[in-house]
Write a protein that binds this DNA or RNA. Structure first.
Length: 510
RNA sequence: GGUCCGUUCGUCUAGGGGCUAGGACGCAAGAUUUUCAUUCUUGUAACACGAGUUCGAUUCUCGUACGGACUACCA
């Protein structure tokens, strides 16, 4: 028996992976790396009806984009292959049958319609229908029906499922790494279906069987699974695997930024932020969902933001590289309560990471965005443009939007800026300014600034009287980065040309 | 409805029987600046409520309220 740490991320390919799913994967990954263990990817595709083509590929690509490398599993293989449950189908039936043989499970023949009727009837009385110890002898199953009738149904090929036989009355005290002791009483629990009529196991059976077979040491999953923990533990027990049963940790949920409830995929489009790591187009509805990647988030920033949603090491550090996260992550520092997602904070993280990016790297991303719009740019200048604009940007697209004047002269001028800054005396001032600039041999920001300041000082007027209309002439707007830095990049010729154009086109007054 | 989980500034959180309850996001003000930002400084703002234990509870216990998850032949 080995006690190597082995964890798995086990998504169901029913659509794109959302924020919560990525965080579950992340915490599993961090836990594995922290302990020098293995991170597996297992695809739980036991529900044929909900299978979405492309979802599995999306999940793999999303993990890749996030930098979460899978050691073993779908896409990479490994000693316990296959890792796709649909390909392990043949394996599960025997375990279900073993449970029937040992008296821990039974065959149930109730048609789905009849159960629906029971549920409806119970609901009408304000109650909930529970298929369990209190009524199973009155339903159509191998516990209630005479053996001969069961055999007859089987011989006739009657559709049936296999249900777990929940113990009548047992106090269960279970341990969760994050929550401590959690208590349940089997008296209130129902006989869950383990094996479906279509020959596929349900999540509960497949999950337990695979975690056992794949020697998983820790099950780290969302809080929505906490209610089925007793079933799973009982299953390990019934299968005789309790001694090597994994430890459990149930992660708090990620909640909507505003309003009630957990974050759903609808919230993103509604409130203007992505809930998926990457863009996803639903193949059935054709609906398109935004992604963090396409919105311009850096994967490191995205991961950092997600890691701090429900976890923190107890220090005041906020910026962590993936390596630092691996080093510092522990389940004991995961908190118990749900965390509201904050799009603002996500942006702030990206801003932080953007500042650390080398100009050349940003320039390469910017070039792509510009090419998308068919904007012509001078490649040699792009890194300088990024250097100048990045500190005021959250995304590379912010740099693109703030840098348009570098690629072409202003086609129009900001009206408010014109009214405020373009006075009767301005044209003359601008012509004089052009003369001053023309005389600067080495057209650097430092040199032009020194020349202009000297000239303005001599004239005994405020710097703003010159700089504001100057800015308007060069970039067509009243805001933006340091003007002398801008004209250094633009060059003398272009600067003088724009000045001349502005003098010609702009008129003072209202 | 039932079962289970949770509750510190608006949000993410630190802390923990005696603290001026700390940080970050956001917001506001000031400084810097040729503008707008950035940046820096300062400010804003919290222990859900009620009992109990205790010399003393935000911290421990129990209730209440509120929030959440689950309650499928879905995961």
């Amino acid at each position: 028996m080995n006690n190597r740490v082995r964890v798995r991320f086990a998504p169901s390919p029913t659509g794109a992976l959302h924020l919560g799913g990525v965080r579950t994967a992340l915490f599993n990954y961090l836990f594995a790396r922290h302990h020098g263990g293995d991170f597996l990817l297992r695809v739980e595709d036991t529900d044929q009806a909900r299978f979405v083509p492309g979802a599995e590929e999306y999940i793999i690509n999303a993990l890749k984009w996030c930098g979460l490398t899978v050691d073993e599993g779908v896409g990479v293989g490994g000693p316990f292959a296959p890792y796709r449950q649909s390909e392990r189908k043949a394996l599960y039936r025997q375990f279900a049958l073993d449970l029937v043989a040992s008296g821990h499970a039974y065959l149930a023949f109730d048609p789905a319609g009849e159960l629906d009727e029971h549920r409806a009837a119970a609901e009408a009385k304000g109650e909930t229908f529970v298929y369990g110890g209190r009524n199973r002898r009155a339903l159509k199953n191998s516990l209630a029906l005479p053996p001969a009738e069961v055999r007859g149904l089987l011989d006739a090929g009657a559709s049936h499922v296999i249900r777990f036989k929940m113990p009548a009355y047992e106090e269960l005290v279970l341990r969760d790494i994050i929550r401590g002791e959690v208590r349940f009483n089997t008296y209130l629990l129902d006989d869950k279906v383990l094996f479906k009529a279509d020959g596929m196991p349900t999540y509960h059976l497949a999950n337990v069987v695979d975690d056992h077979l794949m020697q998983i040491s820790h099950v780290i999953r969302g809080e929505e699974w906490l209610p089925s923990l007793p079933l799973h533990v009982l299953l390990y027990r019934a299968l005789g695997w309790e001694r090597t049963m994994p430890q459990f940790a149930h992660l708090p949920l990620i909640l909507k930024p505003v309003g009630n409830g957990k974050l759903s995929k609808r919230d993103g489009n509604k409130m203007g932020f992505p809930v998926f790591p990457m863009e996803f187009t639903d193949p059935e509805t054709g609906e398109k969902w935004r992604g963090y990647k396409e919105d311009g988030y850096l994967p490191e920033a995205f991961i950092n933001m997600l890691a701090l949603l429900g976890w923190n090491p107890g220090t005041e550090q906020e910026i962590f590289s993936l390596d630092e996260l691996c080093e510092q992550f522990t389940l004991e520092c995961v908190n118990k309560s749900g965390a509201r997602f904050s799009p603002d904070k996500a942006k702030w993280f990206n801003h932080k990471y953007l500042q650390e990016k080398p100009d050349a790297e940003l320039a390469a991303s910017l070039a792509l965005l510009l090419a998308d719009e068919g904007i012509h740019y001078d490649e040699a200048r792009l890194a300088r443009v990024c250097h100048l604009l990045k500190e005021r940007a959250n995304f590379v697209s912010d740099i693109r939007d703030a840098s348009r004047f570098f690629y072409s002269a202003p086609g129009s001028y900001d009206e408010k800026g014109r009214r405020k800054n373009w006075k009767e005396e301005t044209p003359a001032l601008m012509r004089e300014l052009a003369g001053v600039l023309a005389g600067v041999a080495d057209f650097t920001a430092a040199a032009t600034e020194a020349a202009v300041r000297a000239w303005v000082t001599g004239k005994e007027i405020g710097l703003g009287k010159v700089m504001n209309p100057f800015r308007l002439a060069i970039i067509g707007a009243a805001d933006g980065p340091a003007l002398f830095e801008i004209i250094e990049i633009l060059g003398k010729e272009e600067t003088l040309a724009r000045l001349a154009t502005a003098v010609e086109r702009l008129r003072a007054g209202n």
